[in-house]
């Protein structure tokens, strides 16, 4: 059963998580003496959170701010994730190839590709068993 608390959590959950992550990035960057970069990252996350709160009444923004939703919204989320994953895969593989061509060892592109590919294979295996 949905409650007012669930609604508040749904509205504030993602923005607050973003701000907390931004603060963590800020501190991590600041510990290396790069407070300017850290504050910039925090500012980006705060701006993103504010965007979600200010325009949360619009469906696309509301879908960015919440993980739940009805079946159509979940289908849109799944398709968006699929497209994003494919674009990211192209970018990572491209980065890996370019890094090799420049004389690099392909890191950290190879690690990112391995994590993404491994997660994809594992997910397909698990979901196919569930039907």
């Amino acid at each position: 059963m949905s409650t007012a608390t669930d609604g508040a959590r749904g509205r504030w959950g993602v923005p607050l998580t973003g701000v907390v992550l931004g603060a963590a990035m800020c501190v991590a960057s600041g510990l290396n003496g790069r407070w300017g970069l850290g504050l910039a990252m925090l500012g980006i996350m705060v701006a993103y959170g504010a965007l979600l709160l200010l325009f949360g009444g619009r469906e696309p923004v509301a879908m960015l701010a919440r993980e739940d939703g009805d079946e159509r919204q979940r289908a849109i989320q799944a398709r968006a994730s699929h497209i994003s994953f494919n674009l990211l895969a192209v970018f990572v593989v491209g980065g890996f190839v370019v890094d090799l061509a420049r004389g690099g060892d392909g890191m950290p592109w190879a690690v990112i590709a391995a994590v993404g590919g491994g997660a994809y294979i594992a997910t397909v295996a698990v979901l196919s068993r569930r039907g």
Partner: peptide, 22 residues
């Protein structure tokens, strides 16, 4: 139906085919 207004609109305009359950 427990869905969003936008989903009803999408069904009515044929942009979304609902699940068998819906």
């Amino acid at each position: 139906m427990g869905v969003s207004r936008q989903t009803v609109n999408a069904i009515e305009t044929g942009r979304y085919s609902p699940s068998l359950t819906l």
